[in-house]
């Protein structure tokens, strides 16, 4: 089966003044459709850099990144937003919802960006809010929601564009354990049902129960994959 995302020999070096800091040193990773992968490792190990590269918001210094077989390192800056919109869904640690929009509008936003705003987008947003258990919160604004509710809205937003891969950066860091488990459960359940690949960056060992594989990073290298 073709990988949802395939990373080969990826290096990433940041310029920090006169010194070059190496964040990734030859990372190889494949994530299949429907597969859940968790990236673990100490701070500074390169987890977020790898996530950003998989999400096409950061370019590797060297190496290959393919999404559904398409090499994205050769694409121009102008083309990358369209790739993100079409192929990648994001779930952020701080939810990153738009405070002026209702839950339904937040979820429907990627469709508006894709030029598909309107009734169909609203219907689809409502259906996803149903799926994440927020049927009655469609008209609530982020300021009126709990952390767990906000993260469920973020998951619905990540899924609405039917992306190939969902990237979640510390999705439970701002939540209590009950809400965190609920969010991970919803994320895993919906991504499995829709055949989306999920990559989660987390420090929380308990999150490993919701993925197929845990990948350990240290000093910008994968030091140990582990199946669950």
């Amino acid at each position: 089966m073709e990988a949802a995302v395939s990373i080969r020999g990826v290096h990433k070096t940041y310029d920090a003044g006169a010194v070059a800091v190496s964040a990734l040193n030859g990372v190889d990773l494949d994530v299949r459709p429907g597969e859940g992968v968790m990236l673990m490792g100490p701070s500074g190990s390169g987890k977020t850099t790898l996530l950003s590269i998989m999400g096409c918001i950061l370019r590797p210094t060297r190496g290959s990144v393919r999404i559904r077989g398409r090499e994205i390192t050769v694409l121009s800056e102008r083309e990358l937003p369209r790739i993100r919109l079409r192929h990648v869904g994001f779930v952020f640690q701080s939810f990153n919802l738009f405070r002026a929009l209702t839950a339904e509008e937040n979820v429907a936003l990627p469709l508006e960006l894709a030029g598909k705003a309107g009734r169909e987008a609203r219907v689809r947003a409502r259906s996803l809010l149903d799926a994440v258990g927020l049927t009655k919160r469609a008209q609530a604004r982020p300021g009126e929601m709990s952390g767990g509710e906000k993260q469920r809205v973020a998951i619905a937003r990540a899924l609405i564009g039917e992306p190939d891969i969902i990237l979640a950066d510390e999705p439970t860091a701002a939540l209590d354990s009950v809400a965190g488990r609920g969010v991970l459960g919803v994320l895993r359940e919906l991504s499995l049902a829709q055949g989306r690949a999920v990559v989660i960056v987390s420090h929380d060992n308990r999150a490993s129960a919701f993925v197929d594989r845990v990948v350990y990073l240290e000093d910008g290298r994968i030091v140990g994959p582990e199946g669950t």
Partner: peptide, 16 residues
């Protein structure tokens, strides 16, 4: 600014 960053991250074009 953070919202605009999010917009760009989730795939909004600069023109949007």
């Amino acid at each position: 600014l953070r919202e605009f960053g999010t917009l760009k991250a989730i795939g909004a074009s600069n023109s949007y």
